[in-house]
C-alpha cells in the first residue's frame, strides 16, 4: 500500500491538522517509509491469534453510583483560553 499526497490531505483533515505543502510532502515520504517497514508484520500468519488490547486481565471496572464532589467551577475554568458566565467561550457555531 502506498500513501499518496491525497491520502495525507484526507488524514490531516480527519486529525484536525492543517499542514503546509512542505509538511505534506515530508509526511507522505516518511509515512511511506514507516508503513513499508511495518509491512514486515505481513510475514507472520496471525490467523486465529487473539489481538492483545491490554496485558492486564481487567474488563469493566465499576464503582458505586454515588455522587462525589466535583472541582469548583472557577478552578475548572482557570485554564480556559476564553470564558464567559461560567462557560468555555468559543466562536459562534451557527452563522
Amino acid at each position: 500500500m502506498t500513501v499518496t499526497l491525497k491520502d495525507v490531505e484526507h488524514v490531516a483533515k480527519l486529525a484536525r491538522l492543517e499542514l503546509s505543502d512542505a509538511e505534506k510532502n515530508r509526511f507522505t515520504e516518511q509515512m511511506n517509509a514507516i508503513l513499508k517497514y511495518a509491512e514486515k508484520l505481513n510475514e507472520l500468519n496471525t490467523e486465529g491469534v487473539e489481538p492483545t488490547t491490554h496485558v492486564l486481565p481487567v474488563m469493566n471496572v465499576m464503582r458505586e453510583d454515588k455522587a462525589r464532589p466535583s472541582w469548583p467551577l472557577e478552578e475548572v475554568l482557570a485554564n480556559a483560553p476564553e470564558e464567559e458566565d461560567g462557560q468555555f467561550r468559543v466562536p459562534a457555531v451557527l452563522e
Binding site: V3, V11, A12, A15, L17, F27, M31, I34
Partner: peptide, 20 residues
C-alpha cells in the same frame, strides 16, 4: 489552527500515522 500551531513535527507525524 490551535493543533497545527501547537504541536511539533514528531507529534504531528505520529498523529498522522495513527489516524491513518
Amino acid at each position: 489552527k490551535s493543533r497545527s500551531e501547537g504541536f511539533g513535527d514528531e507529534v504531528k507525524r505520529r498523529i498522522m500515522l495513527g489516524t491513518y
